[in-house]
Design a protein around this nucleic acid. Structure first.
Lengths: 244, 244
DNA sequence: CGGAATGTTGAGACTAGTCAACCATAGTGG
DNA sequence: CCACTATGGTTGACTAGTCTCAACATTCCG
């Protein structure tokens, strides 16, 4: 959902360059944001879409009575805000100090007609966002707290360190994780503790997770799902198995 | 999600005709399905997309251990199967005796280039599907069983009888509703009973719901959400208020 | 009528939520 | 340097809502 995908990843060469080529003032249009600042709000017109240059963003929807659902996290290289409508259905906010490149929507549309590669690239991105959001929804609807957090950690690990690094930095706070997983912060915290007690992870700092047994975590995460988070990132999966 | 939307609705005139014009053998390509039969399975190539002519279909994803999530129901006039990828991420199955018009994907793509109206129509459909799936996810992640069922009934009522008829026929069985809402069939059944006891509905038959107090049901459904299911169907909402 | 599939109800278990207290960390100002 | 505070995170006790398992009822069909 929300049409986010990675533009900088090495396995999809050229999307960054494509965007640079399509938007001459690419560099000039980079806007910085403070933690918590809103990029676009629900109902805002979809005049532009965005490419994350630095930091972390989240797509959220609020409700009258204070409940909140986080639909996606966007990190460096992800594109977001590409909703097929005149107004945004989700708010996009900076999680920490971060920066976005702002890309005019209509210019992109025109370029897509000219350059089939850009078209294909954006399309593939939409595909991956859809795949992820399907797994996200399946997870929220049908998994236990442990399965959800295991899935989250596995996904974040693959996204932030595709080579399979064992230390994950969580830029978002517990409330964001909870709202992403459909849990409360207390349950998230308790589940972290359970994972520590079972030797799956350590928490050298609150926001730093060292994954001791990635295989076990992934088994938990996939227990209710035949596909792993980001199933298309085969190399990382192989690395993990080797490390097990 | 899953890119479903209504093509026959009166408020969007011409989409049906557009499709007829674009696909000369429209009538010939209508395929019947028995209850439970699969239209496409997870991983199948996305060679075509589909227009529901009769009956009800569901988009589902299964897991190894038997858990299941229903992502959408498609009724007469809905288009589905338009995933932006080479393979389907969800299975589409017939819920009852039903029929689909099969529309070749590449032909549609070509036509979209020619006819901007078709392009716009399909785009608008994607928008509405996204809106619905966002509410669906918010609901699954953050609502109680009562809120979920109230939301479901309100949505089904608006979709199946846009004029606001008070009797809703549920073609799907309880298990489908449960898997759509992220609940168990027992909880769905109990919640139906609660609604009966509180005078919100009656159940003349298992699959037939008479909605006695649509306003109250809608209030429950929207308690955690500022948007109602299908907020764009304004006339129906007005009718409901009048009926209250 | 009999049997299978579907739906309802009940009792009890269990997961996650709620509320409250406590802890850790980082920043501030005396 | 040390309180002091604010924010974020953890833990505990208790509660509530949903699930599980089992029995029973209903509907649908042959």
């Amino acid at each position: 959902m929300a049409y986010a995908f990675t533009a900088f990843a090495g396995d999809r060469p050229g999307i960054g360059e494509l965007l640079s080529a399509c938007f001459p003032h690419f560099e000039a249009a980079v806007v910085p944001f403070l933690a918590g600042q809103e990029v676009v709000g629900e109902g805002d017109p979809t005049e532009s879409f965005f490419l994350v240059m630095r930091g972390l963003f989240r797509a959220v929807k609020f409700t009258r009575d204070g409940r909140r659902q986080v639909f996606a996290f966007y990190m460096r290289g992800d594109i977001c805000g590409l909703e097929p409508d005149a107004t945004h259905k989700l708010s996009i906010e900076a999680v920490d100090r971060a920066a976005m490149a702002v890309l005019p929507r209509h210019a992109c549309r025109l370029r897509m007609d000219d350059d089939p590669r850009l078209n294909a690239a954006l399309f593939e991105g939409a595909t991956r966002a859809l795949t992820l959001s399907i797994d996200h929804m399946l997870m929220i609807g049908r998994s236990s707290a442990e399965e959800r957090l295991a899935w989250f950690l596995t996904m974040i690990r693959l996204r932030s360190a595709p080579s399979g690094g064992d230390v994950v930095e969580l830029a978002m706070q517990r409330q964001d994780i909870a709202d992403y997983l459909g849990l409360t912060i207390e349950t998230v915290s308790r589940t972290f503790t359970h994972f520590k007690e079972r030797g799956l992870i350590t928490l050298p700092r609150k926001r730093r997770v060292e994954i001791l047994r990635p295989d076990e975590l992934r088994r938990l995460a996939a227990a209710d799902r035949d596909a792993l988070p980001f199933p298309h990132v085969e190399p990382a999966r192989d690395l993990d198995v080797a490390a097990a």
